[in-house]
Design a binder for these strands. Sequence first.
DNA 1: GCATCTATGTTATGTTGTAACACACATAGC
DNA 2: GCTATGTGTGTTACAACATAACATAGATGC
Lengths: 135, 135
Amino acid sequence: MRTHAQHELTKNQALVYGSLSDAGGPLTAYAILDLLRENGFRAPLQVYRALDKLVEFGMVHRLESLNAFVACSHKGCAGHGSAAFAICEKCGDVREFTPDDVVRLLKDWTESQGFALARTTIELRGTCKSCVASG
Amino acid sequence: MRTHAQHELTKNQALVYGSLSDAGGPLTAYAILDLLRENGFRAPLQVYRALDKLVEFGMVHRLESLNAFVACSHKGCAGHGSAAFAICEKCGDVREFTPDDVVRLLKDWTESQGFALARTTIELRGTCKSCVASG
DNA sequence: GCATCTATGTTATGTTGTAACACACATAGC
DNA sequence: GCTATGTGTGTTACAACATAACATAGATGC
């Protein structure tokens, strides 16, 4: 299996991935576009096309419930299973984790139904520990 | 606990819920708007406001990965746990299920992290049994 | 050379969701 | 009665998210 680092990124892909890594949290496509205007980006498609590839490579995840994107937290990993996300609605923090047992159960269910599973989206909304503590 | 039927819906809420029930599958807000133009609907907000309430009542679920809405498949039920959805990318069919064991594991994880869980989104993308069979 | 594939740039447009403001109607308290 | 409050509604305008369609440029393989 290919590691993230082994993907040779094009210029635009590298710029988009850099934005997301530096941000340390989720960004919308249009937020990325604004960050990259100084690098010559002019149109949303430049961002979306790069994001499509990065998601395909597994280097970036799409957060469906936020319409946003986040760099995979496994910086140099050799690939991993389906990711899940705990999203704090107070501070916006997003924590990625890999609930293998959960994914296993979901796979069991799909297999029992004859459903050919391609992709799993798991997103938890709530309040993170520090926000619970502070308020 | 209140059952779905026990919620007394306003006119707009009833119209929107009716559209979704009749459709038997997911609809976007704008698709609902078009269906209800003959009933006097003119603007998206009329749909979105009704949907907000219906989702709050648990009578309608939002499918984050489709930006669409679907009537809860438990027609007259007395409420139930978090729902999950298997979405066929070939035929568009959406199957709702209630994976209590999965939700239990996710709750365990959030509790271990001090994360106060408010809402769980689980959406599986793939190909349903009959679409797999037919090629 | 030339076909092909991928990436890119650009304009315009399509789709999804809200802000802000005004009005109607019910109900609770005086 | 009549006022305050809360909720539902209608309307215009706009913001945010995403893609279609077409043109150009560079790399690779034959």
